[in-house]
Design a protein around this nucleic acid. Structure first.
Lengths: 239, 239
DNA sequence: GACAAAAGTTGACGGCGCGTCATAATTCAA
DNA sequence: TTGAATTATGACGCGCCGTCAACTTTTGTC
C-alpha cells in the first residue's frame, strides 16, 4: 500500500530533517544554540513529536557524532589502502585526518562532543556501543598498517609497546594538533604559521623516530605527501 | 581603621570561597552541576552578591581555568630548568605535563573548558588576555629550550619549521594523549595498557626523529625519565 | 465501508536555570 | 550625626528541557 509507505517515509524523512536542522544549529552558535523548542518550530511539528524520535537532546547530538565518525572511518579505510608501502599508508592516514578536519569541518566540530561526559552520560547504551564501534574501526585501520609493517620488516616494535599503543601515539599527535588548530583562537600569533604542515612534519618525525622504513627527510616526505594527496583527493571525490 | 579592612577582607575572602565552591561543583558533576543558585546557597549569600564578583557564570569558570593554567605554567617553568642538557629539559617538560594531569587532575579537567568557544565568547577581554598570557608563558618555557638546543648544537631546526611550530608538535602530542587518556572512557579495552608510558615513548620518538641529541633508545630514555622524575618530585613537593 | 485498536501528534505545564533590578541594609566620610 | 556611596537581597522575567493527558490519524479486521 502506498498509504503504508507514505507515513513511514514521512517519519523516516523527518529523522533526517531533525539531524540536518540540529547540525546547522549546533554549528552556528554552539551547543546552547541547539534548542528543542526552536528545532520543533523549524521542523514544523510540535515538540512532543521530536521526542518520538530522540529521547533527549543529547541523543540528537550523539547521533550527529555518529554520522561524523562514520565519515572519518570511511576516509581512514580508504587511506589505509592507498599504497603498498606501509610507511606511506601510515602517512596517508595522517593526510586523511587532515582532509577530514579541513574538508568536513562541520563533522569534526561535532565529533568533539563525544568527549563531553555530561552528554555521553545521558545517552543510551546502544548509542555508546555504536560510537565504540566506529572508534574501534578507525583504530583497526591503523593497527592493520602497523601489523603489516612489522610483518614485512618495515618496523620493529619497541619492547614494552603494543601495536595499539603505537597507534595511540599517532592518534594523539593528529588528534591533539587538529583540536588545537581548530578550537584555539590565534595560534598564528603564537608563531605557528602553517599548523597543518607542522603536523605532517611531526607525524613524519615520530615515524622516523620509530625507524619505520623508509626513513625519510622532510623534503622527501613532502614529495610523498604530495603524491598521496593527489591519489586521496581522487578517492575522496575532490576535483 | 580595622573597619575598612574588615569589609575589604571579607569581600576578598568571598571571592576565594566562590571559586572553591564552584570548582567542587564543576568537578563533581560537570558544567551543568555548576548552578549559580546553588552556589549562592552554599556560599550563604544572595545570588545578586555573586554577580558583584563575577558578571556571569562563564567568568567563574574561566577564573578557575586561569588558576589551573598558572599551576601548569609554574610546573613548566621548574621543569625547563631541571637539567643542563637540552634534551633532558625537553623530556622534563613532558614529565611535568604528566605530573600536572595526574597529580592536579582537578586543574587539568577544568583547564579544558578554555576550548569551549561558548564559554570563551562570554568572557571579558581582560580574562582572555590573562589566558593568553599563561599560554604564552608555557610556550615560552619550551621555546627557550628549543632555542638553547639549537644554540648549543643539540638540534638542527628543519628547514621551513619555526621554533614555535616544533614546540607545537610537542604540545600536540602531550595535549592530545592526555586529553584522550583523561576524557575518553575505556582506552584499556582498546589495547592501550599504559597510556602514560606510551606518551613518554612517543615524545621521545619524536625528538629522536628530529635528531635531537643525544638520540636515545627507549631503555635509555626510561633511565633518563626516572632520574628526571625523582628530581621533579622534589621540586613539585611530592614525598 | 465501518469500527476499534494502535500509533502518532499536540501544546500546555512543571521545574529549573541565568541574569536583572528596585529596594533595603550597611559602610563611609564629613 | 547624617547624608552619600557602596553593598546585599530575592522576587522577577524569560528561556530552557522533558512530560503527559487529550486528541488525531493510521492500521487491521470484519
Amino acid at each position: 500500500m502506498t498509504r503504508i509507505s507514505r507515513k513511514q517515509l514521512e517519519i523516516q524523512q523527518r529523522e533526517t530533517d531533525i539531524l540536518q536542522i540540529a547540525r546547522r544549529m549546533l554549528l552556528s552558535e554552539g551547543y546552547d544554540a541547539l534548542s528543542m523548542d526552536k528545532l520543533a518550530v523549524e521542523l514544523g511539528t510540535a515538540k512532543g513529536t521530536l521526542y518520538n524520535h530522540f529521547p533527549n537532546k543529547e541523543e540528537i547530538v550523539l547521533a550527529l557524532v555518529c554520522q561524523a565518525m562514520q565519515v572519518r572511518q570511511q576516509m581512514f579505510g580508504i587511506a589505509s589502502m592507498v599504497s603498498k608501502n606501509t610507511r606511506e599508508r601510515m602517512m596517508a592516514i595522517g593526510l586523511a585526518s587532515e582532509h577530514y578536519v579541513r574538508q568536513h569541518s562541520e563533522h569534526f566540530a561535532i565529533e568533539q562532543f563525544v568527549s563531553n561526559s555530561t552528554i555521553r552520560g545521558k545517552s543510551k547504551p546502544k548509542r555508546q556501543e555504536l560510537i565504540r564501534h566506529f572508534e574501534t574501526q578507525c583504530m583497526g585501520s591503523v593497527s592493520t598498517i602497523v601489523q603489516d609493517a612489522i610483518a614485512v620488516g618495515d618496523l620493529q616494535l619497541p619492547s614494552m609497546l603494543t601495536v595499539q599503543e603505537l597507534v595511540f601515539g599517532f592518534w594523539s599527535i593528529t588528534f591533539g594538533s587538529h583540536v588545537l588548530t581548530f578550537d584555539r583562537p590565534g595560534l598564528n600569533e603564537l608563531g605557528i604559521n602553517d599548523a597543518w604542515r607542522a603536523v605532517r612534519m611531526h607525524g613524519c618525525s615520530m615515524l622516523n623516530g620509530f625507524n619505520w622504513l623508509p626513513v625519510m627527510t622532510f623534503e622527501g616526505s613532502e614529495v610523498v605527501f604530495a603524491g598521496l594527496d593527489a591519489r586521496l583527493k581522487v578517492h575522496f571525490g575532490l576535483e
